[in-house]
């Protein structure tokens, strides 16, 4: 049996993929390459949702806490009354904490994405792996099925 299939069109590719999964090929052994994200393929292969969301959550919470920590701690470090307002002026600090929530959330999600999808890939940078506009199914470890 062949272990590499490539298709010009999405629906043919999805059809074959479904067929392969039904015929008992373990989804773990199937590698696919597509020119754009194909969400139907994710359903067929029953992939787990991306773990990027964990990074996003942790990043956003870290940013929020850091925002409040930074503003409150620096204000208490030199307790100077400004504009007759309380030293720890929470409403004003919310804005800084809000911006840092987004900053940390975004940056850490990006780092998480790079880590999870194994980018940048030095090997592939020096020798790019191209699939053009083909939808490719690649089956690994065929013996083990």
């Amino acid at each position: 049996m062949k272990n590499k299939f490539s298709f010009d069109e999405k629906h043919k590719f999805l059809h074959k993929l479904e067929e392969l999964v039904k015929s008992g090929v373990s989804t773990e052994n199937i590698n696919i390459f597509t020119p754009y994200p194909v969400h139907e393929a994710e359903e067929i292969l029953k992939v787990k949702p991306s773990a990027v969301r964990l990074f996003t959550l942790i990043g956003a919470l870290t940013g929020l806490l850091f925002g409040f920590f930074l503003t409150i701690w620096t204000s208490l470090d030199w307790p100077l009354i400004r504009g007759g307002k309380p030293i720890v002026a929470i409403p004003a600090f919310i804005i800084v904490a809000f911006e840092l929530t987004i900053l940390f959330g975004g940056v850490i999600s990006f780092i998480g994405y790079l880590f999870l999808s194994r980018l940048p890939n030095v090997e592939k940078i020096s020798e790019p792996e191209e699939h053009g506009n083909q939808f490719v199914i690649h089956i690994e470890n065929e013996g083990k099925k």
Binding site: F33, T34, P37, E42, L116, S117, V122, I125, E129, H131
Partner: peptide
């Protein structure tokens, strides 16, 4: 960055 268009990359990308 050595993009290949694999399922894993697209999943995290989306």
């Amino acid at each position: 960055l050595g993009w290949t268009g694999s399922l894993r990359q697209w999943k995290h990308y989306s």
